[in-house]
Structure formats: C-alpha cells, structure tokens
Nucleic acid binder design. Structure first.
Lengths: 344, 344
DNA sequence: ATGAAAGCGCTAACAA
DNA sequence: TTGTTAGCGCTTTCAT
C-alpha cells in the first residue's frame, strides 16, 4: 500500500537550490520573471526531490478552487438515477473540462442544502430545480459565490436557465385536451425544498399556471383534475403512485417528469392496463425509454444544452464578463406511443 | 445581480467582540473550550456581522478537503453518457453524501489524467477502468493522496474493486460457444490510457485471457475470431462499428460493454439485420435497454455496489483503518433476448 | 534578476 | 478560561 511520506514543500526546494521561495514560485509559474540559470537550477532540484506543488495551498493563496459546484435538489442517489439530471450534468461537466475545472457534485447535508453550501469549496454554484429564495440566496451573497440556476425561477438576484415553463406546460396540457381527455391525473414535482412560503415564481407554480390556462381554454373545470403532489422524481415513486392513478378514473396522466411517467407506465403494464388504449400518458423532459417501456410522448428539454449554458454563464461571471440574462432555451413536444383519444 | 461585498473574517469578529481569534474559532468549532458568556457574545456579533467562516481556509488549515475525486478515464461527456459509469458514480456519491463529502468529477486535462491529478484538490481519488501503473501511481504517492481503483487491475500498491474478470469473461464467451457459435466478432474496450507498455494485469487483458480459455475449451482457433479494438465505449462508436461487424460474417458479437452493444444493435436493426436470428450479441455491464433496443443478454456487474465499496474503502483509508484488500464483487449472466443458436 | 516578508483565513500548541 | 503566536504552503508586493 501507499506510504505516507511527508510532502516536499516549496521551502525545501528553495533551500536545496540556494534560492528564495519567490524564485521557486516564479520558476514554476512565471518563467519570464527569473533568470534562465536560476530557473534551470531550481527545476533541476525540484525534479530531483520529486517536488509537486501543493495545489490546495496554491488555490487558497490565489483565492480560487478550479471547481464548479452542482447543487443537488435531493439526495444524490435519487438525482443520479434521473437521466435528465445526469444529462444536465454532462453539459455542465463538458464546459468545466474545457476550462480545466472539476465539477463537484454537492448533495444536501442532513437534508439541508444550506449546510451543503456552507461547506462547499467551489468557485461557483449551479443549482437545479428550485428557487434560491431566502436562505441560500443570501448565504451565497455573503460568501461572494456566484450562482446560476437551472430550472429555477424568476429571481432578481440570480440568473436561471429555463425553457418557457408556462408555454411548455400549456402545450403539454393542450395536447391531451385536444385529444378529448377530460378526466386527468396530474403528477407534479415534489415541493421545492428552498421555497418555504408559497411562491409563484418556482417551476412547479409556473407549470401549474400553464395547465390552468390550457384547462381554461377548453372549459375544463379544475375539479376534473386529480392532483398528485407527493410523488418524488423517481421511477420507484412513479410506480408507487401508479395504483392510485389507476383507480382514479383518469383517462390520461400528465406528469412533470418522464422518470415518474415511466414508473407509472411500469405499474400500469404490470397490472394489465394498456397504454395508451386504457390510459394515455404524457411526460416532461424527454429521457430515453426506461425499463422496456414504450417511448413516451413528452416535452423535450435540451438538458445537455441547459448544462452547457449554465456553465458558460458561470464562467462569464467568474471571468468578469457582464451577463444580462440567461436565454430561454427551446423546447418541443415529441411524439411517442403513449397518447390516444380516450376510450369511450 | 450579486454584489461582491468583501467577506467578513474571523479577525473582524474577534476585534468586534473583544476576544481573540482563538476564542472565535473555539466558539464555532469547540464550544466546550470556551466560557459560555464569551461564546454567546461571539456568536452574537458573528450573527450581527453576518459572518460565515471561510471553508476554504478552514480546510487548508486542517489539511483536508471534504471531497472525494472521481477520475474519469475518458472525456467527461463520454463517461457520463455511459449508464454503467453513472451508476458507479451514484454508489460513490451516496457514500460521500453519508460522510458529508462532495464528489468531484475529474476529467482529463488536455487528454492527460496525470495533469488532472496534479490539479485536483481532494482527500482521495477513485479511478475507473484502468491501471494506475507508472505516472499517476507515483504521482499520488508523492502527493500522499490515497487512491482506490474500480475495474483496475492487479497492483501491489493500490486496491481495486473488481469482479472476477477472467471468470466472468470466460463464462460470457462460453455462453455463446455453447450455443454453437464459431465465427465471432469481439469488441474490446479502448486501450487503457495509463498503461504505456503492454500490461497483462489490466481489465482488457484479463478478459481476453478469459476468452482464450473458453475458446480453448471448445477448440475454437483464435483465427475464427475477428477483433475490434478501436471502438470507444460509446453508443455512437458501437453504431459506427456496426457496419464492419455486419460484413465480417460473424454469427455472434461479444462486446466488453453494453453501451457499445446497444450501438451495434441499433446499426444492425437499421440495416435489416435481425438480432438474434441473423446475428446474436452478448454484452457486459448490464445497463438498461437503450434507444428502444431489445434487452441484451449480458454480464451483470453490480455497478452501484462497486461505487459504494470503493468509497467505503476510501473512507477506511482516510480514517486510518487498515484495509487488507478490496473484495471481489459478484457477477452473473443475465438473460436477455439477443442470443440464439447460429442460423445455418 | 532576486529575495525578504507580508499576506490568504483559519487552527491549535503553548503560555499565561 | 483566554490570548499569543506560529504555523499550513503558496503568492506577490516591494525593496535591493
């Protein structure tokens, strides 16, 4: 196994080479600021002593970390089980790699995102799926850590990378209403952790308002919609909700995330309910078909692109470029095999 | 947008509260080592001044980082597109979360894993898919950074979490040989970046030796096997290889990774080749079916579990517990719908 | 061209 | 109980 020999420091090299620490530092990071002879001698001894500069100390001294943080809205094993989130991460990470940065996945600490932020050592934070109102918002402000949201909400202090949530959810709902569905089950995302008070700027509220608009257009009363508000964004929890949904009498399920939808489909199939003949279903995100289920009709979100844009925006911030606002990214409804007119 | 007000430091609090920095430090991190009155006064002023301890400085001083690093074998966007790797990461991350750690994804810098390691600020490194021989091995030794491999190879200096590669690949190959296949296409993993010299301890070599053993048992000459050694571990590159494979006359494809296999299947289906009637295929890893392809017969690896074990091992190392060796994790052949006897 | 020394913000051994 | 002070390893200003 590895032996923990003590690290060689810059002082060792300085002493051994007969130069100052400054000289050594320059030899490594600013060759032009030191004589050729001195530099050679220094690098020589550094090599001989197997000196590796301590990146930790360097970063600390330079006040940077060469790391972007990705703040997870829920437990890590839930988030990484969601292909949509992973795809966002892939976009984020690609840009990090291009900049020589690491991407740090930051799960909540004891269910607290706030605590996680306090412990995080990163140059910038990217959040996903919730509003930064209140606690975390002022915390990052105190820490002088730039923050960019993905799927966040309107906030005067932070940028958010989003699709047009109202419009997308309007179209999603309209798609099924136009097919004739009138008895609906709507599965929402879990209440955002960071919005203590009811807040109409978060992603859930905005989508709900899109739904309401569509329902209004088709004169469908809210009472004919059954809401499922306690479903985690997981396959398993979708599956779990399947039972109640099946028994709700709905002819169509509208979910705010594909991963839930696939869980629901799995349950339905296991229980002899045919999709879409018996129950139609439409999702949100557009992840790949899951567990052998048929391809979902859904709202496509450019996940990878969202990650990329968020990271690029973050580097703009870090490198002092002014950023007016994050752009709306495009979405579209993609056809799968899970929608048809209601049976009767 | 955020305003970058200057951070309050421990010195500010000390001065303002009329105590020393030590006292402030204790007030936060060792309440029992300071009087109640002093503590109260200090926390009071800290609150008033919105003081947030600088985690960077704290970590630097304590010589830790509260972060585990996950060293990627290839570009980040390739790795995160592989569900097998993501699942490993999920296992790693879960344990990190349990320990209040972050998980840092470390992509190569300019194609160099070595450079990435030098820049990384983490308490421990977990690698994936290659041997740590040579450069990186001695580097982490100099940096005194503990390292644990996943899918690495035999190495006297580092632990590796693996299945029994020889046995698994033997069984994988035997599975198709026993069905009667004699003309085979074998798709390997790309040559591990970190093994400059031919090395027989890496994962690819070990699996090849399993293949040889199985072929020997069935008296099948190596000449009846067509090797594809330049296929990246991606869906797209599998797809790309599909053409040559189709034309190779093989009745069965044996791949070292599912993601390649699904790419190949996609190509075959698009070109009217039926799986398994025309060409059988067997994979490795056991990821979920991809892009609507049928479920692959494959070797199941407990990816999540591998990640967990690697992380747990790492924390053993970090917390000074002695670790003899990483255990072999179990594997199994799982039946899909992609295997049948050869046609003629 | 080179070096002394003062940071960076926090911890902790040691002294009082 | 509390404070002084010397680190942690590197960067960088400012003399020389």
């Amino acid at each position: 196994m590895q032996m923990n020999r003590k690290r060689i420091t810059i002082a060792d090299i300085a002493r051994e080479a007969g130069y100052s620490k400054t000289a050594v530092s320059f030899a490594f990071n600013a060759p032009e600021r030191i004589g050729a002879a001195a530099r050679e001698k220094i690098l020589e001894t550094a090599r001989a002593l197997n000196y590796i500069p301590d990146q930790r100390a360097r970063n600390f001294s330079l006040g940077r970390q060469l790391t972007l943080g990705f703040l997870l809205p829920q437990d890590l094993d839930i988030c990484l089980a969601n292909p949509y989130i992973v795809e966002v991460m892939r976009g984020l990470g690609k840009i990090c790699q291009d900049h020589g940065y690491m991407l740090s996945i930051i799960p909540p600490i004891n269910d607290s995102i706030y605590e996680a932020v306090k412990k995080a050592t990163v140059d910038g934070l990217v959040t996903m799926g919730y509003l930064v109102s209140g606690g975390v918002g002022s915390l990052v402000d105190l820490m002088a850590t730039p923050l960019v949201m993905i799927d966040g909400g309107k906030d005067e202090n932070f940028l958010s990378v989003n699709i047009d949530e109202e419009k997308a959810s309007f179209m999603q709902m309209e798609r099924v209403l136009s097919l004739g569905h009138r008895r609906l089950a709507v599965v929402t995302l879990p209440a955002p952790t960071l919005t203590p008070k009811a807040d109409d700027r978060g992603i859930v509220s905005r989508r709900l308002s899109g739904y309401r608009a569509a329902l209004g257009k088709y004169d469908v009363p809210l009472s004919s919609v059954r809401f499922f508000n306690n479903t985690e964004t997981t396959f398993d929890d979708g599956y779990r909700a399947g039972c109640e949904i099946m028994e709700s009498g709905a002819t169509c399920v509208v979910t705010m995330s594909d991963i839930q939808a696939y869980g629901i489909m799995h349950y339905l199939r296991e229980h002899g309910v045919r999709v879409p003949q018996d129950i139609s279903i439409i999702g949100f995100d557009n992840i790949c078909p899951y567990r052998g289920e048929k391809k979902l009709t859904t709202v496509n979100q450019p996940a990878y692109e969202k990650g990329r844009i968020a990271a690029l925006t973050m580097f703009d911030l870090l490198e002092g470029r002014t950023v007016e606002s994050a752009p709306l990214v495009p979405f579209s409804i993609v056809e799968g095999e899970t929608l048809c007119p209601p049976a009767n």
